[in-house]
């Protein structure tokens, strides 16, 4: 079901936590609200779920304005950070709870619970209590519990946080498959950019209560619109336009002076130099990251990150004077804003 979020503002006392947030999500799409902690992403999700009421703006689920509806009348499925499984109910009872609320008869309940458990491959755990399950299993129960009610949309709040790194990736792929199989519109909240890239069709990057950019993962990475987005997704060197203009292959880009240029580390090159170069620096640090070498280069009173493939490159020593340039001028984009403490 499509979701329309229009101009949502939310105040907590004097705090203005959401500023004019708008999203328009297509039916069956999976999107992620991505941002650092305190950026308002969870509050926006809770507004959509109905746990918070926005100070202004509208939430429309499948054409119906639900802004003023309490959460129990919205028909949304919610997966909580710590899953919030009812400890006094078995897995099957947890799943059946919402069906009992809807007064489904015993046989319908049984069939639907079995179907949902099969979807997350937990059929044999039906009579166990949540505490006796592993973190990954608990998470799958939480997802099944939300899906068994056939909600209009599925909302996940930092649902992978409690899992260890390896399991997290496996569960993200698992979730992506389940969601696509069911074909449900899904909104996730996370601060983990890899998670966002793994599970989403589109990502909304948020900072300070605003949505900076809402686009596909590729667009976000290749053509970030703000310095914050560029810095948050992947690593980026964000340079003032006049400084970037000194890179020989790049030349002048971005017409206005207040613009910043984003250059990804893998797009920068270094070569040892003796003479004076337009943009020269020294290697401050070097480390091997598998197939590449990552340098930290000090140039123009900044630290720049450079990623070079080791295939045809001799590693440079710390202290070597180098000249900097870009590989592909097209891949450098101009953005607005600035990043505090940018690399």
């Amino acid at each position: 079901m499509p979701i329309e979020v229009a101009d949502i503002n939310k105040h907590f006392g004097k705090l203005h936590v959401l500023r004019d947030c708008s999203l328009s999500i297509r039916d069956g799409e999976t999107i992620t609200l991505l941002g650092a902690s305190g950026c308002g992403k969870t509050t926006l999700l809770r507004c959509i779920a109905g746990f918070e009421t926005p100070s202004s703006g509208k939430v429309v689920l499948g054409g119906e304005d639900v802004t003023r509806l309490p959460p129990n009348q919205r028909g949304v499925g919610f997966v909580f950070q710590n899953y919030a499984l009812f400890p006094h109910m078995t897995v099957a009872e947890n799943l059946a709870y919402g069906l009992r609320v809807r007064r489904a008869d015993r046989s319908t309940r049984k069939a639907k619970v079995e179907e949902a458990l099969a979807l997350v491959s937990l059929t044999e755990f039906a009579d166990r209590y949540p505490q006796s399950l592993s973190g990954g299993q608990q998470q799958r129960v939480a997802i099944a519990r939300a899906l068994v009610l056939r909600p209009k949309v599925l909302l996940l709040d930092e649902a992978f946080n409690a899992l260890d790194a390896k399991l997290r990736v496996a569960m993200q792929i698992e979730l992506r498959k389940i969601v696509k199989q069911v074909g449900i519109t899904t909104i996730c909240v996370t601060h983990d950019q890899t998670e966002a890239l793994t599970i989403s069709d589109r990502i909304a990057v948020m900072s300070k209560g605003q949505i900076d950019q809402f686009a596909t993962p590729t667009e976000i990475y290749d053509t970030p619109t703000t310095a914050y987005v560029a810095d948050f997704i992947g690593a980026a060197n964000v340079l003032p336009a006049e400084l970037a203009a000194k890179l020989p292959s790049l030349g002048a880009r971005g017409s206005r002076e207040d613009r910043m240029i984003v250059i990804r580390p893998e797009n920068l090159t270094v070569r040892p130099t003796k003479g004076s170069e337009p943009l020269a620096g020294t290697i401050a640090f070097a480390r091997i990251t598998g197939p590449s070498v990552e340098y930290e280069v000090e140039a123009a009173e900044r630290k720049l990150r450079v990623l070079v493939s080791r295939a045809d490159h001799d590693m440079l020593d710390i202290g070597t004077p180098v000249a900097l340039d870009v590989d592909k001028a097209d891949a450098c984009v101009a953005v607005s804003g600035s990043v505090e403490g940018s690399a």
Partner: peptide, 12 residues
Amino acid sequence: ALEEASLSMGAS
């Protein structure tokens, strides 16, 4: 969240 979970499943 336990209470919110119950609400989101439609319980009063």
